[in-house]
């Protein structure tokens, strides 16, 4: 399309403008609303907002409370094709989510796993199969079996160094191959912020309910910056109880 003979489009009618804006996503509509006041008015037309194209966003958080059916989860995932990061909480069936992710959200590279209290072989195998491109993984459960952890660390080839965060597991070095230990962040000395807060019963600091202490000592980890940010958001999205 050449710009020769370009001419003033101020006379373009409101309804034609709305028709054009219908083919833009949310970000482009927001930018178009700043062109001038007529465009701003067109950008507020109700017909533009019957359907939202949220593909410009790269991460979303699902609330902890509320039951999601499989159909609802599928519908959401189908819309978020460009999703890159996801936190799984117990409101989503821990087995249904992975085939859905495999089918609709192939761009996910960051995952925080907070479903229930156990991370076992079923979860690690599902991850290895359905989210092979993971770079950052946070496992925040009370119990993570050694077999499951080993499976995840050896199967997810793209995990970054220190890209996996584990809460509540003992004697890691003695059970994992040396090449996998470098991918972990964990704490043995009880000095990190998470360890110090581990016994705090303030609800906002206990998103998953009370943490149990094993053997009188709790092994916790520090999250990297990105995951800390997610954790912060998660805590603020959850209602106090």
């Amino acid at each position: 399309m050449t710009n020769s003979n370009r001419r003033d489009w101020n006379e373009l009618s409101y309804e034609i403008l709305v028709t054009i804006l219908m083919f833009l996503n949310v970000g482009d509509i927001a930018a178009a609303s700043m062109v001038n006041k007529i465009w701003n008015k067109a950008c507020h037309d109700p017909s533009l907002w019957h359907t939202l194209d949220l593909s410009i966003r790269s991460s979303y958080f699902l609330p902890k409370k509320g039951d999601f059916t499989k159909v609802a989860v599928d519908m959401a995932m189908k819309l978020w094709v460009s999703l890159e990061s996801i936190t799984l909480t117990s409101v989503v069936s821990r087995h249904d989510i992975f085939p859905t992710i495999l089918e609709y959200c192939k761009k996910i590279t960051e995952m925080k796993f907070s479903c229930g209290y156990i991370f076992d072989v079923k979860h690690s195998e599902a991850m290895a199969k359905c989210t092979p491109n993971l770079k950052v993984l946070s496992i925040r459960v009370i119990v993570a079996t050694m077999t499951a952890l080993c499976c995840v660390l050896t199967s997810l080839e793209h995990l970054e160094d220190r890209g996996t965060v584990v809460v509540g597991i003992r004697d890691i070095q003695n059970h994992l191959p040396p090449s996998s230990v470098g991918k972990l962040i964990y704490c043995e000395e009880g000095k990190c912020l998470r360890c110090k807060n581990g016994c705090d019963t303030t609800p906002i600091r206990q998103p998953y309910g009370p943490l149990r202490i094993y053997g009188g000592r709790m092994r916790l980890t520090l999250s990297n910056i990105n995951l800390s940010e997610y954790a912060f958001l998660v805590q603020h999205h959850q209602p106090s109880h």
Partner: peptide, 23 residues
């Protein structure tokens, strides 16, 4: 409409004004 929308996708506000000659 689709063609015009494609031309202004991911463009700045100044670009859109200049492109359409909009005041």
């Amino acid at each position: 409409s689709r063609c015009i929308a494609k031309a202004i996708k991911n463009k700045s506000v100044e670009f859109v004004r200049d492109y359409f000659g909009v005041t």
